[in-house]
């Protein structure tokens, strides 16, 4: 019961091409065939020089983000059956420089993740639990940030974000979400440090709430929500600092 579908892939070979070009393939598929499997079969049997990142095949490692008919998706969680009767056009993840074929340069994104101090900064003046004890964190406290800790760093939200398209200085959805995730963690005391990044022009206020990041996020993280909640925090921060100044 194998059907066929036409897949057009945008190619770019830095040593040979000045700009990207299209190459089309015919691929057979069944009900279970994912786009990633289709690309691997193209690589194995039709075009061995086609390059793309992949690993886990189960939507958790975050390697295979790419544009499918203009929408950023994980190739391993995109199924050809959903495009029956259509053609598929595959491009590298939008808004990132293209290194080669479907491989983009993620270094800006990774640097932003690192910049926001994505780790627990112990609270000042509070003793930490010993080696054989945990911080007490109730399910309700866990729930405050749990959803925002589900990001797999695939970069899809950056490809979905028009603000990042226009301004590469914008910290962007995943990094701002990660800030919110740590700020809301009951074990963390680093909020003050991270709020500096949130309050900057390139922080939450660069977001105009398009909301497409949340629409595209393959893990239901809802970065747009984290950013709006970050705006609330930033506004509170601003008010408090005003009063503090008056008090001085």
């Amino acid at each position: 019961m194998a059907d066929k579908i036409k897949i057009t892939v945008q190619r770019y070979r830095p040593e040979q091409d000045r700009e990207p070009w299209d190459q089309s393939f015919e691929v057979e598929y069944t009900r279970e065939t994912s786009l990633l499997e289709a690309l691997n079969s193209i690589k194995d049997t039709q075009e061995p020089t086609l390059s793309f990142r992949w690993s886990c095949r189960m939507a958790i490692c975050g390697s295979c983000g790419m544009m499918v008919n203009g929408v950023p998706k994980l190739a391993c969680k995109t199924f050809l059956r959903d495009y029956a009767g259509q053609e598929m056009r595959i491009e590298p993840l939008a808004n990132f420089p293209v290194e080669r074929d479907l491989v983009v340069d993620l270094s800006d994104f990774i640097e932003k993740l690192e910049r926001i101090k994505p780790y627990i900064i112990p609270k000042k003046g509070e003793s930490q639990p010993g080696e054989q004890r945990e911080y007490i964190q109730t399910p309700a406290q866990l729930e405050k940030y749990r959803q925002f800790s589900m990001c797999i760093n695939c970069g899809i939200c950056y490809a979905a974000c028009p603000q990042y398209k226009l301004n590469k200085e914008f910290l962007g959805p995943a990094a701002l979400t990660l800030i919110y995730r740590y700020n809301e963690d009951s074990r963390d005391g680093g909020k003050e440090e991270r709020m500096k990044l949130v309050n900057q022009d390139t922080g939450v206020w660069s977001c105009s709430f398009v909301g497409y990041c949340s629409e595209c996020c393959p893990k239901g993280v809802d970065p747009a929500s984290a950013i709006q909640l970050g705006k609330v925090e930033s506004a509170k921060d601003y008010l408090i600092s005003m009063f503090k100044k008056k008090g001085e």
């Binding site: 830095p14 040593e15 939008a94 420089p97 293209v98 226009l166």
Partner: peptide
């Protein structure tokens, strides 16, 4: 020989 291609906006 790296030469990233930046797509125009």
């Amino acid at each position: 020989t790296r030469q990233p291609y930046v797509r125009p906006v």
